[in-house]
Amino acid sequence: MSTQSVAHDQPHASGGKYVQIAVILFVLTALEVALFEVSHEAGPTGFGALLASHFVVILLALSALKFWFVAMFYMHLKFDLKVLRYVFASSLLIAVVVISALFVLFTYNRTLWWATGVWK
């Protein structure tokens, strides 16, 4: 059926590539857990403390990387039609904007205005 065969004209990654990505994902997850353990047990100074002070940023970066690998290779966004990338990216953009805005509305105002009574 013509409508189905066209979808397979797109080049997809090979099995070897998929294995590589699986290894990367596994390593990144291990790094996440390691980062957590090190930061969790960290003392007041040293490398552990440095990691702990940037814990959230590093953790989010690692998970964003994993997200990117799955979306690009396993979900074939790297090889597929651009329009699919736009559909997913624009939805994600709106989702991230909404999450961030709500987070700011619920923390910034709470800590700075509701709690202290001072308007900033």
Partner: peptide, 18 residues
């Protein structure tokens, strides 16, 4: 349209920034 929802909530006291 996705960035204006709180104009329905001016009376709830979101603070001057919001």
């Amino acid at each position: 349209g996705f960035g204006v929802w709180s104009h329905h909530m001016f009376a709830t006291g979101m603070g001057p920034l919001a």
